[in-house]
């Protein structure tokens, strides 16, 4: 495959993941609404909200600096870039030979700027959000790294495009499932989901992620919102494509590509449904129980590694 084709594939994946992100989020919302015995917003509500925000004013609070205006662009860029660092559908022929670890670090860049922006307006709510977000992330990231390490150990190298091709067709193993569960818990924490954060809350004092965005409006808010949704989709896609790669094609021929695209989409939305189920069935943890939650995730990841060594 020529570099141009590979680049085109990479870019179209990034664009597709970004484009589908509001739908994934909407899907979770609709499902949650069903569990609450109601109809819920239209599936496309996310796009409608974004379209509306485009015609609204950007408000800049007096204490804010240029960083406040820069942060939405950085966080959205980092989320989109992260979606280009690993292959979702076909393992062969990936342009960016980056791996999953890179994706995590690129996402961390977005978080860094969002956290800074949360503090920029001198609002205590932004501060609450930022300090909680970085504290939770500090515990979630090592778990994600260990989970990725388990995978890397299993496939004989870092899980990038080239190496993952080797996974295709391998037997589904218990350690891979354990690692996937550990990573799923991390996704819940990273995407501001129950039991770590409540995306539906209106209470400033309890918010984590949204508290950092309280000062944003207009297009900048649209970008920040989309960034969070893309990040969520990227992490779910990572889970679907890298931790549970079953059903994905190794080759780039159109038939296999279409088949594995369908398998990927099914897994992506299946995971989104799982998020909705978890979110509807447990209460949000007390803030200082989150370390226990992520500690359990870490335990699972380590267990996965031990299981791989033993099996």
């Amino acid at each position: 495959m020529s570099l141009a084709v590979r680049l085109a594939l990479t870019l179209s994946q990034a664009a597709l993941l970004a484009a589908v992100a509001p739908l994934v989020n909407g899907f979770i919302k609709v499902l949650k609404a069903r569990f609450q015995r109601r109809v819920g917003p239209p599936l496309t509500q996310g796009y409608r909200d974004l379209a509306k925000l485009l015609v609204k004013e950007n408000l800049h609070a007096a204490p804010t600096s240029a960083l406040f205006r820069l942060a939405p662009a950085v966080s959205l860029t980092s989320a989109v870039l992260a979606s280009a660092t690993f292959p979702c559908v076909a393992f062969g022929g990936w342009a960016a030979s980056g791996d999953v670890l890179t994706a995590l670090y690129v996402l961390a860049l977005g978080r860094f700027f969002t956290a800074l922006a949360g503090l920029d307006a001198a609002s205590a709510f932004g501060g609450l959000g930022s300090s909680r977000d970085v504290s939770i992330a500090a515990l979630a990231e090592p778990v994600a790294v260990v989970a990725v390490l388990v995978l890397a150990a299993g496939v004989g190298g870092p899980p990038d495009g080239a190496v993952l091709a080797g996974v295709h067709g391998t037997v589904f193993t218990s350690w891979r499932l354990l690692a996937a569960i550990a990573f799923f818990l991390v996704v819940l924490a990273e995407c501001a989901r129950v039991p770590v954060d409540n995306p539906a809350t209106h209470l400033e004092l309890t918010m984590v992620h949204e508290a950092m965005l309280l000062e944003y409006s207009g297009r900048e808010f649209a970008a920040s919102t989309l960034a969070a949704q893309v990040k969520q989709t990227v992490l779910l896609a990572l889970l679907a494509a890298v931790f549970l790669p079953d059903g994905l094609g190794a080759s780039g021929d159109p038939g296999a590509l279409a088949l594995s695209a369908a398998a990927f989409a099914a897994k992506l939305f299946g995971l989104a449904a799982l998020v909705a189920v978890v979110e509807s069935s447990v209460a949000k943890l007390r803030l200082f129980r989150v370390p226990d939650f992520l500690g359990a995730a870490a335990g699972l990841a380590i267990l996965a590694y031990v299981a791989r060594e033993a099996l």
């Binding site: 409540n198 209460a283 949000k284």
Partner: peptide
């Protein structure tokens, strides 16, 4: 339940 994000119970309470 709004305070603990128990969304299904919150909805049930509203019903």
């Amino acid at each position: 339940c709004a305070g603990t994000a128990l969304s299904v119970a919150l909805a049930e309470g509203l019903i």
